[in-house]
Design a protein around this nucleic acid. Sequence first.
DNA 1: CAAATATTCAATTATTCTCTTGAATGAGAC
DNA 2: GTCTCATTCAAGAGAATAATTGAATATTTG
Lengths: 223, 223
Amino acid sequence: MSSQNPKRAMFEQFAAVARTIGSAHRLELLELLAQTERSVEELAGLSGLTIANASQHLQQLRRSGLVEARRDGKRMLYRLADGDVVALLGALRRVTERNVGAVEKVLNSYFRERDSLEAISRKELLRRMREGTVTVIDTRPAEEFAAGHLRGAINVPLHEIKRRLRELPRDQAVVAYCRGTYCVLSYEAVAELRKRGFKAFRLEEGYPEWRAAGLPVDHSATA
Amino acid sequence: MSSQNPKRAMFEQFAAVARTIGSAHRLELLELLAQTERSVEELAGLSGLTIANASQHLQQLRRSGLVEARRDGKRMLYRLADGDVVALLGALRRVTERNVGAVEKVLNSYFRERDSLEAISRKELLRRMREGTVTVIDTRPAEEFAAGHLRGAINVPLHEIKRRLRELPRDQAVVAYCRGTYCVLSYEAVAELRKRGFKAFRLEEGYPEWRAAGLPVDHSATA
DNA sequence: CAAATATTCAATTATTCTCTTGAATGAGAC
DNA sequence: GTCTCATTCAAGAGAATAATTGAATATTTG
């Protein structure tokens, strides 16, 4: 709480924001909010926190300007403040991954075929979308798709994929995406599609990063 | 310290790194290290910490992989781990600035003419350097310049600027930079040069960001 | 207006982090 | 080998943070 020196005071502000993301629970809440706006009860349920505790963490996030809230009837709906927050979490992820062996190990065991399924970048996907040489599938559940998705993507939730193979082209590339870098849905989808002979790829990142980059999204129901 | 759930364990790793940058002292140390490699004693002096305390903070930064250390005789020299760290600090700065009024106020009082002196981006500067239509001056002290500077820049420490005006061209743009976004040296230099009728601009960011972006740097003595 | 629901507040306890102090280590100098 | 210097380690007091509980507030519903 010092402040004699303006530079020190500034560092103190930065540090306060950093401390706010210095909690696994709050990071999880932020990840959940990166998908879509959600109520306190929903967030508590998804993260395994009690309602009161989730509320307190959300208020800390709010005080630091990382999330915003609005009232909808008797519920409070929270959402990420903006794309800079997604960028901050991405930077944190990169720094952590590079130097912390433990993360590597978790990644290797959890996302088993991580590196074997080549990913394409946002830039590359955009180029191919403009060319019209690619079909983009969103492997998240229908509700999440409805709340926002890449413009031009079709919703094929992972568990429906086997039933819906005939909607997908065999002569051009299929790119799957889901919630973000640590979401397994698109990995599974790509693995399944490859097994069936499709030219399937995974988008390197997920919906939150796409939206944060200011790239086109839609909020319609199933396209 | 949980770890039953792999996802939770991952968040815990990220949170640990975030907590490490959640301290004004450590952020200041990181900023000092963004300039150049330094010894514990030097860092303690510059940041006003006791040696023992500085050492402990540096070890925390090291455990989180944010800095690296090497021994040189009886001194330990610390340096930033890599450019990702600069990117993380930049992302933290952006998120904080946008939402925390206190930072705005500090900026306005400390960097008084902040917005009145237009800044040019790295990209723009690179373009003009290739064209040869710009002179780049580094306004930091000679020691820092010697430890690393933008390739093609000449060192004109702020306090020497009045004496060295005749080295600078009046017919083409002069771009000044210094330690980073919160360094005042380049602001002062640009203000002085404008007063004298030069076409002077400030580089948006400083040396650490330039180097972190992988752009060309040199380590010679005064060029 | 009273009841029901969703969220927040306030107080408590347990845990973690910070700084200080003085001793211990490692490397070079004599 | 001993001395000196730079850094690190270890222990303890004080401060900040986290999770839990139960009460309080705001909003819709009857």
